[in-house]
């Protein structure tokens, strides 16, 4: 058993952040860990920053992770990866979906969206283990952009020493049958993809 693992999953409202991190929590519980999991959604249903924190260990006290102690940062959007980069511990793992969703202030021209180089440089101040993944493209190839969250879950899975069957069982239990097949394919695809990606 691992001593502890703290995972931060960030994205934009509507990307499926909460569901994916729910499943991550259920996977950890099924593997015998104590788990705490919390989401910060802001006040609206969609479009704002979404942050989910999942903690697993023999005994977990706080549902909130301390800044600088995150083991794995999973970002469904690039700007959100940078926004939370200071939570990552030195030498941790960052898995970043190569997608830019410009906030309103960028569209209105009052703020600038950071360049890919700036994003990578910022993350590299914390760690060399930065994986940039074309998750949105892969989800589109699979036929539904909404499978991005399961694709990213697949990308994270090899970094967590829990049997792959437990992951699949939890996805199976959680998703409705009509979308199960495509999402399971997305999980497999993500798991495969991460092993082919060069550190970015």
């Amino acid at each position: 058993m691992m001593k502890k693992l703290d995972i931060l999953m960030v994205g934009v409202g509507g990307q499926g952040n909460v569901l994916a991190s729910d499943i991550l929590g259920e996977v950890a519980m099924a593997a015998g860990y104590d788990v705490k999991k919390t989401d910060t959604l802001g006040m609206a249903q969609r479009g704002g920053s979404v942050v989910s924190q999942v903690r697993m260990a023999n005994r977990v006290w706080s549902p909130l992770i301390k800044e600088g102690e995150v083991d794995i940062l999973v970002a469904l959007e690039k700007l959100e990866a940078v926004r939370w980069s200071h939570y990552l511990q030195a030498g941790g793992v960052a898995i970043v979906n190569n997608l830019a969703v410009p906030p309103l202030s960028v569209s209105l021209g009052t703020h600038r969206y950071p360049s890919d180089e700036e994003i990578k440089d910022t993350l590299r101040q914390r760690t060399n283990h930065v994986y940039f993944i074309d998750g949105t493209d892969k989800a589109k190839e699979l036929g539904d952009i909404r499978t991005l969250n399961m694709f990213m879950l697949g990308c994270v899975s090899p970094f967590i020493p829990i049997d792959v069957q437990i992951w699949k069982d939890c996805i199976f239990q959680r998703l409705p049958s009509n979308i199960l097949e495509i999402n399971m394919a997305a999980f497999d695809k993500g798991r495969e993809e991460i092993s082919n990606v060069n550190l970015g």
Partner: peptide, 20 residues
């Protein structure tokens, strides 16, 4: 305390909730 800010993680464009 170890509290190191990462350059650029400050002053980024915010992403407040918006009307859908």
């Amino acid at each position: 305390l170890r509290r190191q800010k990462v350059a650029l993680s400050q002053g980024l464009p915010g992403r407040p909730p918006v009307l859908c």
